[in-house]
Amino acid sequence: MKAFGKLHPVTLLVYFVMMLAFSMFLRNPVTAGLSLLGSIAFCCTLTDKREKLEDLKFYLPLSALIVLTNPLVSHNGRTPLFFVNGNAFTLEAIWYGVFIAGMIAAVLLWSKAYSKIFTSDKFLYLFGRILPKTALILSVALRYVPLMKAQAARLKDAQKTLGLFSTGSIADNLIGTVKVYAALVAWSLENAVETGRHMKARGWNAGRRTAFSTFRFRFTDAVFLAVFAAAGTLLLLAAAKGTLYFGFYPAPTPLPTDPISVSAYALFGGLAFLPFFTETEESIRWTCLRSKI
């Protein structure tokens, strides 16, 4: 179990929404860099070696692509490096490309961490309070995913011995899969009706309903939420005053280094590395504890 993931869903949701929003909203190289580094550090604690390697293979080419294509679509900037079809390929556009690439990578990595931490049961818990019926549909849908996967595999095996998928060509594969899919649809609809009847038989819709959950709101959650609220307000104020502003075109503006900006950087850095620190602290503590067993 991940230490950060043990927090209450509300705390987690507030954190992720804040990080995603600030990552996209604060157009400042320092905060973008901090956000990227924080998300990388966090994701490192969540993934194994193989997944890290796969991520590297995905993010490096993607970033390179963004850096290189930005000057092709954006011709702003004061320093032309060369001309393509009469359009300037500018240094500023490259810098801006680097910035966008970093920001997109950060958003994708925060989203990845969110997907890993904010599992479907947490989502349903929050969702179920606001939109109970929609949450019910979603929970049924989630429950059917593994069922249908298994049934599709069984259908495919059975039909292979009955002459489908016989040559291995794409066309054959496609025809076979379509037939299997149609059979899966029939099976699922049939099952769905039965499941619905069982839900009714077990009292769904009979009256007022409790939304039971195994999540608990602890003191730590209150502390975290208070910190988030304070940090979020301060960052918003700083952003609203325009101190964090940084422009790329036509030429990069000087990096804001006034006291407000610097403290905003520190604050944001703290936020961005919070999950990483929580995870590391927990694993250090656990190592100590385990040595005592």
Partner: peptide, 19 residues
């Protein structure tokens, strides 16, 4: 077809929630 939720604890709680 008679298990209606995706977690064991939730399946146990389902009838009680409805009450």
């Amino acid at each position: 077809e008679q298990i209606v939720t995706d977690k064991v604890w939730h399946e146990l709680a389902f009838g009680l929630e409805n009450m």
